[in-house]
Design a protein around this nucleic acid. Structure first.
Lengths: 396, 396
DNA sequence: TTCACTTAGTTAAATCTGTTAACTAAGCGC
DNA sequence: GCGCTTAGTTAACAGATTTAACTAAGTGAA
């Protein structure tokens, strides 16, 4: 059920080395400016081990040394940071309404981003277009001078946990597409890591991995767009991403929140998607599929029907958040997806509902922080880049 | 968010040794009768390493050798099994309606079980009673001759992920109880591992860990009793048990499946517990809290009101299963808890609802197998014993 | 200024781990 | 009896972290 970047089970000395290298790298990522001594204290490794590994990572361009960190009454330590100058991570997001690509540094800083808003057609045509975008980006001088660690691609549907195959993307009409194999012939010179993941999983991973400050111990990301999905990430140095037996983890759009409610395209009644998805809102307001949802809604101005629809959708989203909270109890929740561009009329009722109902089980404990990403255009692509880095860190 | 029996992060050579030992032990547990060569093939360790570790485990009484396993045209290998004769694992379950204790072998075979059906009162009184039961069991000749690896205790409420503290057990009226500390003075001679866990988590763990045959890669256990909760286990050799930031993972009784429905004691409306818990069924049928629910219901015989209530409850349970399936996508679901003793009138509608709705996302994939435990009196206690073993296997 | 003290980081020897490669063991089939 | 195959053990080896001693670089007080 769990797919992870850290191997499970047995291992040899080489595995131990990788584990420790990755752990040290993770410590620097989470605590920028940490010294070798800080790392040793945190990882429980000895100074000697840390020193050796850090030396190797400095030479390979993964880490750089910074200023001296004064220590009370002793020799100051040398601050360490991820080296943002030598490598580049590529991420691509195949969305229902367009393609987005991103290039970023080891620290998650976006160096360049590009998007087209034409909806993908067939896998082949999409691969051709995506390859052109990626090659153009990579050939840009800013990117070309760096070593590319790999490419991560996200898709709007469940991916098989065993193989990089998109199982089903109802909104694209794709079934069982091994997209990396379709794409690879068009980008033969792209070596390094290639990976495929679900859009919400990757977004969740990125929010966790590139979190500013000390990251929470777990994150649930809710992606509200044409459909609705969620991603879960947890773990310390080696983020764990549960995907499920069939890759269906996070298909929360089809959890039932209103028994006997509207019929969903999945065949059931009262699925969350009948209340809080792009197509549900379109259906409720009679907005054509060709129109841009956000512009169509803002064009209506102050409209009681719009307000009521978005409030209902927001409350359903709040219910979903509440149910995820009671099922997964994450340390942080992140709201993203194109629907977030509808802004406060949708978000306020969701947060209000969640706030009003969340904390009745354990009184007096801290509330779950919620982050709203109002423009998550590149969130999934950046998350895919984060996944590339996590994998590369183990292989480095 | 995740609590695991396998350490995360960095490690030294000793850690690697433990990891491999535990991995080898897990292989024998999952594939009884495996030979050293089988283990080597499966763990990717060399024959030499496996040979050495197996030798040590044989000497410590964790493994025993069995018959020769004929190999096609070569020297037969020696079958290996968990040694069920030297050790004993103790598990205790503090339930709303009584105490259950169990002693079992490394293979999960129950050597002895005891229960009392008086409801627990205060933590102190409960500790006194539980200590007496455990000491009596341990002093029995069958148990006394074995080496006790430890004691696991389960409670009907969320346990803090950091410390062994029961946060809240509404049905017991307990808040923030460090039960192991309360119990320890009454059992000073019990050394080894002590651990405290939520009842559904432990039950899930046990079903996973002691699963007959090759275990599924993940299990969701649904505990339907006075309240309703769930436990999730996943992972290969080192089962991972997510507990959540506040230990609230699996509080599915308070997921909302009927917005605007009945008021729940948690303050919200339409929680699953308002439909499928012991107290909800009592309330619907006017059965007093002092009566035994199962006998009260069977006493009514063929009663349309009972049938309708149980059918409604069953369908709510099916909804819950469906929602868990779409959120966690486990490889197997297990239904347990005292409510299962109500039998087919409750279970049939639940399974029917789930079957009818489950597989609409990915057609043509295998269905999720469901196991119903009709009498789960000792399931949680046995699960706690399993957790003791998992921990001991790493420390062995 | 000097000296004691503290903390950071490096180095070389020691220890422990799994691996390699050669070996023995034990069965099958011709 | 021989060749072949697979299981398992052994000793030399390579590689990883640790240990312990060392150097480096600051603070603060006499």
């Amino acid at each position: 059920m769990v797919s992870t970047f850290a191997p499970q089970g047995a291992g040899d000395l080489n595995f131990l080395k990788k584990l420790n290298r990755s752990s040290i790298l993770a410590t620097v990522r989470r605590y920028p400016g940490a010294t070798r001594a800080d790392i040793a204290a945190r990882t429980q490794l000895t100074k000697a081990t840390v020193g050796g590994v850090v030396q190797a990572l400095l030479e390979r361009g993964w880490l750089r040394e910074g200023e001296l960190q004064p220590r009370g009454g002793g020799r100051p330590g040398r601050a360490l940071y991820l080296d943002d100058t030598h490598h580049v991570l590529l991420g691509a997001d195949i969305g229902v309404r367009g393609l987005r690509i991103v290039a970023c540094t080891l620290g998650g800083e976006v160096l360049m981003q590009r998007c087209v808003t034409e909806a993908p057609t067939t896998p082949e045509e999409t691969a051709v277009r995506l390859a052109a975008m990626l090659r153009a980006m990579r050939d840009d001088p800013i990117i070309a001078e760096r070593h590319c660690l790999g490419l991560g691609v996200t898709v709007p549907g469940p991916v098989s946990p065993e193989q990089p195959i998109l199982r089903l993307a109802p909104n694209l009409g794709w079934v069982d597409v091994a997209f990396l194999e379709v794409l690879r012939p068009y980008l033969p010179e792209f070596d390094g890591i290639w990976l495929l993941d679900n859009e919400a999983n990757a977004a969740a991973f990125g929010e966790f991995y590139f979190h500013d400050g000390i990251p929470p111990e777990s994150i649930v990301y809710i992606s509200a767009a044409s459909g609705i999905g969620s991603g879960l990430v947890t773990g310390d140095n080696y983020p764990l991403v549960p995907r499920g037996m069939q890759g269906l983890v996070g298909e929360i759009g089809h959890t039932i929140v209103q028994p006997g409610g509207l019929y969903c395209h999945c065949g059931n009644r009262g699925c969350a998607e009948t209340l809080v998805s792009g197509w549900a809102i379109r259906a409720a307001l009679g907005i054509d599929d060709a129109e841009n949802l956000v512009t169509a809604i803002t064009a209506r101005g102050d409209d009681a029907e719009v307000d009521a629809t978005l409030r209902r959708a927001g409350e359903a989203l709040g219910t979903l958040m509440l149910n995820l909270h009671h099922t997964l109890n994450p340390a942080m929740m992140v709201l993203g997806g194109s629907l977030m561009r509808l802004g406060l009329p949708l978000v306020t009722p969701a947060l209000a509902y969640f706030e009003a109902h969340q904390n009745d089980l354990l009184r007096g404990t801290q509330r779950v922080p919620i982050k709203v990403i109002h423009d998550s255009t590149f969130t999934a692509a950046r998350g895919a880049a984060a996944e590339v880095m996590a994998k590369a860190a183990l292989e480095a």
